[in-house]
């Protein structure tokens, strides 16, 4: 049963990350996803301190706020300070992440947060944190419910916002010319990435969530030329990483989160090599160019 819960949580988070990560890659914002995943840390700590508990809602709000603040700061440094975009990202997220680390070490006694857990996650503890109702009914691990809720929210967002995200991702200026609120879609996506990061924190940690955001969508990008298929394939690669990661970790008795990210990387490598092998044969695209 433990294995089931761990793989389920891993898969739920991997799918949420895969969907959002696909858009990040297509918007050429993969590193912004990286930045957000780190920069939400102070938001979480401050929310812990203010609410004095590990309630989910304040945590989510704190993180979402910091996530959006991160993107605003990055744009501010890029546009107003006229810094390169990668330098703006580098400054913003290391600074915010460092504040988070300081806060954790300062208030370590008061906060039920552990640096190792934040950095590397501890998905193995998921089955221990059960949601038991007041009448004493066991609803299963708390994280499963939170991760399911998050996935539902993201699927709804992508379903209703498919056209909006599609047009603003492909051709922002054209969208603007049509009078579509480009900033709204940008911040909605960034808010969703922030939420996903927080929920992923406890299970895979701040560093490895980046792997789930970027690697499965990148793998899907290699083999498809259709956005909808890319979303589905990225999700499948995410789930495979969760499965493979669990059993790899069990086999070598190592970190589950680390193993999940490793499997994601191995999948990418396999797909890439397979494509290289196929390119040696006369490819479909070469024929298409002729007609």
């Amino acid at each position: 049963m433990e294995a089931f819960w761990i793989i389920l949580v891993g898969s739920l988070i991997a799918v949420s990350c895969a969907i959002l990560g696909s858009y990040l890659i297509l918007r050429k914002m993969a590193m912004v996803g990286d930045a957000i995943s780190h920069a939400v840390l102070p938001g979480i700590v401050i929310a812990y301190l203010l609410s004095g508990s590990r309630e989910t809602l304040p945590m989510l709000l704190g993180a979402a706020f910091l996530g959006v603040l991160t993107t605003i700061l990055i744009e501010l440094f890029y546009k107003k300070a006229r810094l390169q975009i990668d330098a703006s990202i580098g400054i913003t997220f290391t600074w915010l992440f460092a504040i988070g680390i300081i806060l954790i070490s300062l208030f370590a006694g008061q906060v039920d947060l552990d640096q190792d857990c934040v950095l590397y996650g501890e998905i193995a503890y998921v089955p221990l944190d059960l949601w038991v109702t007041e009448s004493g009914y066991n609803m299963g691990p708390r994280t499963v419910w939170i991760a399911s809720g998050l996935l539902l929210l993201i699927v709804l967002f992508i379903w209703k916002g498919y056209k909006g995200l599609f047009i603003t991702t492909f051709n922002e200026e054209f969208a603007k010319a049509l009078g579509i609120g480009v900033a709204f879609w940008h911040y909605a996506l960034m808010g969703a990435v922030s939420l996903t990061t927080v929920v992923s924190f406890e299970s895979v940690g701040a560093i490895l969530v980046v792997a789930l955001l970027i690697v499965p969508p990148a793998t899907a990008y290699l083999i498809t030329t259709n956005l909808k298929k890319m979303l589905v394939l990225a999700s499948i690669f995410g789930i495979l990483s969760a499965f493979g990661g669990y059993y790899l970790a069990a086999a070598i008795n190592g970190s589950i989160a680390g193993a999940m990210a490793t499997v994601a990387g191995i999948l990418f490598g396999i797909v890439w090599v397979a494509i290289l092998m196929q390119k040696r044969r006369p490819s479909k695209t070469a024929i298409n160019y002729l007609d």
């Binding site: 297509l26 599609f166 047009i167 991702t169 492909f170 051709n171 054209f174 990008y221 498809t224 030329t225 259709n226 956005l227 298929k229 890319m230």
Partner: peptide
């Protein structure tokens, strides 16, 4: 970008 000709024209 992963899109077809029709996807773009529909925009």
């Amino acid at each position: 970008f992963p899109a077809s000709v029709m996807d773009i024209v529909l925009m």
